[in-house]
């Protein structure tokens, strides 16, 4: 259950953040694209949370898990809860998330748990598109104007430390994320090189999300997401 919950929370919180861009994107086409990616993440979140609830066997469904847990009970990585920042920060976040989710879902698609394998098979195709989209923008911004280069490098610098948490060893999970690190590094390094950006040196690697110890941002995100659901306990929507 913990693993499905962690992945489901990653996807849910990523969706919530990406959806914040709706009506605010730099181009109308990008508004559509970001909504698409948010919808993909939300779709994966619903499958994963539903399954996590079934595994737990305590009668919690996707909405109970999404709306009635407090931040200390969420298991998402810190990366996805960070504020959107400017478009460069958002694309840095998406690049790191997608470059992690692609090998993760691909490996999941081959795991013995049939439900997880089916979710992985569906989600990896979507993540491949997210990765393409993020990579394209990172290249455009990195190799665009002076201002966009400056912002994109700053975005990568800001986000890079949070990548480490994604690959913390989890030996008894259906897929041990530690095994995905080298593919991630290859993917991201190639994109950054083509974008004329520098891979940051990292001395600080924050973590804690998988244990429910989050940044200060998550509680606010949840307060907004859960406010209406919690105001009317037990009703149908």
């Amino acid at each position: 259950m913990d693993f499905a919950l962690a992945l489901g929370d990653d996807a849910l919180i990523a969706a919530q953040r990406l959806a914040e861009w709706t009506t605010r994107a730099p181009e109308m086409e990008e508004d559509v694209a970001l909504a698409n990616i948010a919808l993909d993440q939300l779709g994966a979140a619903r499958l994963l949370l539903s399954y996590a609830g079934e595994l737990e066997g305590a009668g919690r469904d996707e909405d109970t898990l999404a709306y009635l847990r407090d931040d200390r009970e969420f298991r998402n990585c810190l990366l996805v809860e960070l504020p959107n920042g400017d478009f460069a920060v958002t694309m840095a976040k998406l690049l790191v998330l997608a470059a992690y989710q692609v090998p993760l879902y691909t490996a999941l698609a081959a795991c013995p748990d049939e439900r997880l394998a089916a979710i992985g098979a569906k989600a990896r195709k979507e993540s491949a598109y997210h990765l393409d989209h993020a990579a394209l923008w990172v290249k455009r911004l990195g190799d665009g104007t002076e201002e966009s280069y400056r912002r994109m490098q700053a975005g990568i610098d800001q986000i890079w430390p949070y990548a480490d948490e994604l690959f913390a060893a989890w030996p008894d999970a259906p897929v041990d994320p530690a095994t995905l690190r080298s593919e991630f590094d290859d993917t991201v390094t190639a994109v950054l090189a083509e974008a004329t950006l520098t891979v940051p040196e990292v001395a600080w690697t924050p973590a804690g999300g998988r244990d429910g110890v989050h940044t200060e941002h998550l509680s606010y995100l949840l307060a907004e997401m859960q406010v209406l659901h919690r105001a009317h306990p037990g009703v149908r929507w």
Partner: peptide, 25 residues
């Protein structure tokens, strides 16, 4: 969108608003 009271409603609303962007384009 951020406060939709169920995940299903959130998905439907997000897709709807996205449709409107598509109509505009």
């Amino acid at each position: 969108i951020s406060r939709a009271p169920s995940l299903k409603r959130k998905a439907i609303l997000l897709a709807k608003v996205q449709d409107e962007a598509g109509h505009g384009l």
